[in-house]
Amino acid sequence: MRMFNCLALGAGLLATTFAVPAHAEDAKVAAIVKGLDNPFFQTMQKGIEEQAKADGVGVNVQAAANMGDATGQADKLTAMALQDYDCYLVNPISVSNLVQALVPVAQKKKPIVNIDSTIDAEQAKAAGFAVSTYIGTDNVAAGALAGEEMLKLVPKGSKVALVAGIVGDVGSNARIKGFKQAVEGKLDVVVMVSADWDREKALTAATDILAAHPDLAGFFAANDIMALGVERAVQTSGKDVKVIGLDGIVDALKSVAAGELTATVAQYPYVVGAMGVEACKLAAKGKELPANVPAPVLLINKDNAEASLKNFPRPGGDYPDPLREMLK
């Protein structure tokens, strides 16, 4: 009995502490993102919440327990679909895991704003709905930006190595593909390894690659964490090898500012989240949304690293945002 009281009391406290009071707001947004065990999605959540505050929009941001929690994410969305939100902002773990949970949302004719990771259009169609808009960064374009920067940094025909994420990861594949397309015929890609998004694995792999290819001129890593590992290996070897990462996390920006990491291509989960809220606000106003809105990708090198750091997690300078224009 005592235990039960404790339980009820504890849960009651939780409930009263965190329940969002229902203010009179322009619109109420339900957002569901991927696992918050990754800083990328924490930043996205921050973007959603801050933009919502600035716009006077109420928001409930939920997340999967981890990056593998495909059903848990669907369950949470199902619960929110039963509540009265004006707009649903979704960043699915996979292309299909939220499809069924979105059916009741679509039946209520609420706008569905898809951010970051796409929902498979065909499955959505089969389930009887289509997303109102997709906002996300183009990983191929981001990889290409890194490739173009590499072309500027090393002489034509130089040897470069690629460090990919987990085998077969869609995002990793797209980034690598973009880089390869950009340097095709101009640089010599000698090896591609998989380092599972892990700093230590990237360090080990890069050390081995440097030993095997003493004349290597550059590395491209599919994310910043691995780039930082590669950079450490380069530093230890004492060679002048360029290292470009991708993501734009704080540690990478600091490293670029300090002259260690050569460059990184920054994506802005913060902006993706914020733009999602803008899209919801537009939809609430009854505006027609564009089917596809590209989120900004910027190249960060020593010249603009300081400014980027200062503004983090927002971009260092102004960026194009068609949704903001429409809201004016």
């Binding site: 981890n66 593998g68 929690d69 495909a70 848990g72 895991n97 499955q123």
Partner: peptide, 11 residues
């Protein structure tokens, strides 16, 4: 979830 994913849901 409509697809088979090589991801483990530790939860």
């Amino acid at each position: 979830i409509g697809s088979a994913e090589p991801q483990i849901n530790t939860s």
